[in-house]
Amino acid sequence: MRRGGPFFAIAWLTALEAIRRPVFLLVALSCLAGITLLPWMLNYTLGDSGRIIRDSALSFTFVGGLLLAAYAAGETLSRELQRGTAAVLLAKPVKRPVFFLAKTLGIILAILLFTLAALSATLLAVRAGANDLMLDRTAALPALAALLLGPAAAGIWNHHTGRPFTSTAFLLLCVLFPGAVLLAAGLPPPFESLAFAHTLPWPILQVGVLIFFALCMVTSAASALATRLPLSAVLLLCAGLFLGGLMSDYVLGPHLEASWLARLAYAVLPNVQAFWLLDALDGLHRIPSVYVLTAAGYAAAWSALCLLAGSFSFQKLEIS
């Protein structure tokens, strides 16, 4: 007997279904193209191009990931319920919390792949545009090649074998972008100071990990909301929730001492600022590991509460 069979089977299928949706590829490809083309588009930045590229690329990663997480998590549940596949699945020996949690894990897996590809693209873009005067083509061209080669190869593969284009293209991008990072690391840069061996921006990866934690929170919240609400409402509420979380320090911060309501709202809203440490990158060489672990703990606790509420809601849901 295979242990955990149903759980991992549902998670795998959910991830596959998510990346096979054309919207998923469209959003992921747009973000990766945006990040890759940043160094090609920037001019006359007065020595700030590295920072602008880094901030913009991570913004692409966060906003794109947020859209993908909310859309995929919201759609996977509401669509399964609407399409009737959930009814067939739950007529099998699958407990409802297992179904719900496996669905969420599947989306997190798809988001992890996107984050890996986007961070690889970010590393290449930061190196390619680090110098204001000269584009580092040893990083820019491998990134561009990965961006173009992924969909092109998927198209050819689809033509010859009939394999689904969208998932193949997405998976190829997830392989080709890290491959491009390795290739760029092996190529001699125009300036020795740009070589990855000296300048691999580890703190960017740390911020990337923190962004991934925030995206896990979005996925959990969207999954919980999707047990009762249609996709449009899930997207709207997720956007509102995380926008509120982004502004919570500014809006609620001054009232925390005096108002219990402000404290309650501050506790409930996801504190996205804790995961958005771009400013810290300017001053610090590295983000302390303790901070990353604390943020991971906060994200895990907040996500667990969402998933608990979602499981309870799904347990009571009538599947008609």
């Binding site: 007997m1 069979g5 991992f8 549902i10 099998k92 020996p93 699958v94």
Partner: peptide, 11 residues
Amino acid sequence: SFYARLFNLPA
């Protein structure tokens, strides 16, 4: 294959 995994059927 997916439905077989839901029943934990040996491969």
